[in-house]
Each structure stands twice: as structure tokens, then as C-alpha cells.
Design a protein around this nucleic acid. Structure first.
Lengths: 201, 201
DNA sequence: GCCCGGCCGGGACAAATGTCACGGGCCACG
DNA sequence: CGTGGCCCGTGACATTTGTCCCGGCCGGGC
């Protein structure tokens, strides 16, 4: 019996996947969670063989949780299952010790075979995505630039950002400017868009 | 036998739902599509009793397709299934003649019962969402304001927008300003965010 | 008919934004 | 020990953005 943990915030998706995987005769869903900060505790309780994690989760990112899970329960393999095939996500997933990376496009059948492969010690990664991740190069943004850029989503003014990050407005503008330069964009919104696109959040 | 059409762009979600609904003894999935502009043609071919439509689809919005489908095939009931419970979406769905509106949170079991209810002539709508839709009021934006605001996503400059919408830059700024006023926000990004939030895109 | 509202444009102005040059402090690496 | 990178801040500057005027052209409704 292969013991599975499933982390996914969308209730319908979670339920459908659980039902689906439960149909496989040798699979058993031992835990379903809808928030990132429940992953590690539930895993410690239920000792799954494979954890299927979404990335965008309330509470804690699936990538964060993946790293923590590898630490706390090395026997458990991590398979990332995400909507967005962003190069930076894949890179971070690998750095976090994930054994596989699937996007939610692709057919459902992929899922079960991926689980089995991962358990067999293989790594499963979309080849095209791997190429994109390599060609995109590593994250050029410094930690501070990331902070400022993250705080700049949904139209915050410089003053808002400065307050949120506890910096001088002047400094914020400098970081924004350098981030805009590094992303080769023309303004802050394009910069956040580009950074998100690449998974450099 | 209840004949179903399923429109959803995410392959995994589509596959999982199809499998799930196929499990019901009296359901039959007669068509699966991944793009909005395939909905009506496929429906005319396959004559489903109920169409399950996502809203955000490539090619054509599910809401658009819903209206066209009600026109072309009045016997077919429309059930909107979406990630975002935006008040304006619900409103537009109702205006398009949809019989039900479900969000992808909530448990999977809801889905089958919703299909049966819709077929029985009932309307299925989340009560909380209905209240929100009523309290939010109708879309205050004029068509042009919508155009300009839509073109303002991901950091386009005034010149970009003017070129995209074939207007003078001065006019664009006026529309942006009035849209900002109507959404009670401080800049264009907050305005697009607010407008999207309410489903006024 | 007249008025109202949406459409389209212009001009002028304050504020916000993006850029550049410049300082100093800190830590790591050769 | 120097050098380079990141951190944090300042000041000045041109550009962009948001706002408030103004004008005119339509079409629908009382």
C-alpha cells in the first residue's frame, strides 16, 4: 500500500484528486489538507510515503513546506503539483528536495504514474519545463529587491511599500529601480509581472 | 441518462471531474472541451442536457459562451463552475441565463446534486454569494472605461493603452481617472484590482 | 425642443514615479 | 588588507500619472 498525503487548497480539486487516486488499488490517501501550515504536522501523524503538494497555499507556501518536510521526514518523497509551470518554481522545488514536479494541465493519468516513478527513485519533470528553467538562469534579484517587489503588488504607492518593509521611501525607489533594470522592464508593474512569471517572487 | 458537457481549461481538473461524474450511474459525459470557442459547436453536435462551464477559458469567456448557448440550444441548462466567487460574475451569469453558479471550493459532492437540481428546474446559487452580488450593486463602469481599464493590466503606460484602444492619450487619462474615482481607489492598479475583484472586467 | 449622459479631445497643474550620482556601513572572499 | 557586493540612505532631475478645468459631438428621453 502506497500512503499519500494531498495538499491542495481548492476543495473541489482536492476532493476529485482524492477520489481519483483512491481508485488505484494500491493507493491510500492518509491525509488531505487545505493549508500549507498543516502539511508537516499531518505528515508526522500519518507518515505518508509520498506527499502531493500544491504551491500556492494559504498559510505557508508548498515549496517552504516541502523543504521542511524533507527535513522532518526524509522517507517521504515530495511531488509538487502546481497550476503554473514557472521556471523559478521548478528550480526552488528541486532545491527544496522535491522528487517531481507536475503541472495541472496534462492528463490525470500522469498523476498515478508519477507517484509510482517517484517512489521507485526516479525524478519526474516535464522536459520542456526543465529546459526553460535552465535557460532562464537563476534569480537575479537580491532578497531586499524581492521584498520590495512583493510589497508592490496591487498598486501600493512608494509610501505604502516603505511602511510595509520598514525602509525609507528613497531606498524603496532605489530598489524598485534596480529591480526594474534587472527584469528589463519599464515600470514596477511590469517588473512584478516578469518576476512572478519566472517564479522569482 | 443525463447528458453532460464539460468545459474547463485545466487538463487535470477536467479529467478528474469527468472521471468523477462518469461514476454516477445516470450521468454520461458527451463532450469535454478546453477552450471557450469550442463550447457551442460541440454542444450542437452532442446535444447535452447540462453544460458545466468554467469562466476563465482561452478563446472565449464561459459567460459569453453561456449566453450564446442558451440562444442556440435552449433545452440545455447551464451551470457555471468557477474558481472565483466574484459578485459581478454571478450577476453576469444570471443575465446570461445560467441556472446555477458554483465555486470550486466546496466539496465535490455538491457537483452531482447541483446538476440534478438544475435539471429539475431549480436554481442553485451559494446564498452568501448571492447576498454579496446584491450588495455590490451593478457595474458602474461605462463600456469605454472597461476597455481602458482592461488594457491597463500588467503595467501598460498611457501611450500603450492609447495605441491598443485607438484613442488619444489625453482621453485615456480621463477615462482612467473616472474609473479610479468610481472604484474609490488611488491609482490605476488598485482600480483594475477592484474592478476584477467585483467581476467588472 | 431641451437636457442629460456617454463619447472624444485639449490644457494646465500637483503629485508620484523612475533614474542617476553620491555617500557610508557591513561582511565575505581572495 | 583591499575589493566587491549588498545594505540603507540622500538629493536632484525628467517623465509619467492623476486631477480638474474646458470644449464639442452625438443619441435618447421627458
Amino acid at each position: 500500500m502506497i500512503r499519500l498525503l494531498l495538499a491542495e487548497d481548492q476543495g473541489m480539486m482536492r476532493g476529485a484528486l482524492a477520489l481519483l487516486l483512491g481508485l488505484e488499488p494500491d493507493f491510500e490517501i492518509v491525509a488531505q489538507v487545505g493549508a500549507g501550515d498543516e502539511i508537516v504536522p499531518r505528515a508526522l501523524e500519518t507518515r505518508p510515503d509520498v506527499a502531493l503538494l500544491d504551491i500556492e497555499l494559504p498559510g505557508r507556501s508548498g515549496l517552504d513546506a516541502a523543504a521542511a518536510l524533507r527535513e522532518a521526514l526524509p522517507a517521504c518523497q515530495v511531488l509538487i503539483l502546481t497550476t503554473f509551470g514557472r521556471p523559478g518554481y521548478l528550480r526552488r522545488a528541486m532545491e527544496a528536495g522535491a522528487a517531481g514536479f507536475l503541472v495541472k494541465d496534462g492528463p490525470v493519468e500522469e498523476l498515478a504514474v508519477a507517484v509510482r516513478r517517484v517512489l521507485a527513485g526516479e525524478r519526474v519533470i516535464d522536459p520542456g519545463l526543465a529546459a526553460a528553467a535552465l535557460s532562464a538562469g537563476p534569480n537575479p534579484l537580491t532578497p531586499r529587491e524581492r521584498d520590495v517587489l512583493s510589497a508592490a503588488v496591487d498598486g501600493a504607492t512608494v509610501a505604502d511599500i516603505a511602511a510595509k518593509v520598514h525602509l525609507s521611501p528613497a531606498t524603496v525607489r532605489n530598489y524598485l529601480s534596480s529591480a526594474i533594470g534587472k527584469t528589463q522592464t519599464r515600470n514596477r508593474m511590469e517588473a512584478v509581472r516578469a518576476a512572478r512569471q519566472n517564479g522569482w517572487l
